[in-house]
Design a protein around this nucleic acid. Structure first.
Lengths: 116, 116
DNA sequence: CCCATATATCGACGCCTGTCAATATAGGTG
DNA sequence: CACCTATATTGACAGGCGTCGATATATGGG
């Protein structure tokens, strides 16, 4: 696991401790930040939690508006953000739109933290 | 500032779903959202990555300013957010401030996603 | 004590975001 | 068709956030 690295002559009074290990680039950081941005709102976290706990693993907007005490447009807005982030799946059946967790999405997100 | 702890879901009466399973309450959601807010910025993700990959597991501000191409006050600001979120530890030695990952913090954060 | 360096804090500015009211779209029903 | 319901979209507004420049604080050296 320990990679071999070429160590520079340790400076006397310097503060630099950089090693040559791979580090998150700007573009990757941008993408991963967007994923966490989707999770960075209490109402969206509650949406995920409610959908996950719902019967059949899915819930429609009418089930989500009341427990969050938010207007229907706002809930739809949050759901769209979660869908765009790849965390929720949307399926329309008749007049209703059913939202469910994308399988493995939360686990994959957790994995992002491990490989930082 | 706001001390951040990772709380166990000892929820009071939150909302009820058709399945009756426990669901994230507003206060817990608020705290956990704040944790993800700290991760919801590309430059902060890069800071964590650089600190993690740094020799000795720590880095000072002077090591972090250049790779991010940000001003020193901005870097200090981001570091403060990460420290307040419980992700980074700050230790001052002489003129320099050394930042290191809080052991297990990233893993605990990943665990929050699993118990949503 | 005066100065140089490293870091933190402050004030301001522009942009992004969460929320709502109003409206649009779509699908079901008579 | 007309009508109702469920959901999505739009526009607007307030507040939060990332960034910078200027300044304050702390530490070490002559």
């Amino acid at each position: 696991m320990t990679a071999l690295q070429i160590v520079e002559p340790a400076s006397a009074a310097a503060c630099c401790t950089s090693s040559g290990l791979p580090v998150l680039g700007p573009e990757e950081a941008q993408g991963k930040a967007q994923l966490f941005k989707a999770l960075a709102d209490p109402n969206r976290l509650r949406l995920l939690s409610i959908v996950k706990a719902s019967d059949g693993g899915e819930a429609c907007v009418c089930d989500l508006t009341e427990p969050l005490d938010l207007g229907q447009p706002t809930v739809s807005h949050h759901l769209k953000i979660l869908v765009d982030a790849g965390l929720l799946h949307r399926e329309k059946r008749g007049t209703w739109a059913y939202y469910s967790l994308v399988p493995g999405a939360l686990e994959r997100t957790a994995g992002v933290l491990a490989e930082l």
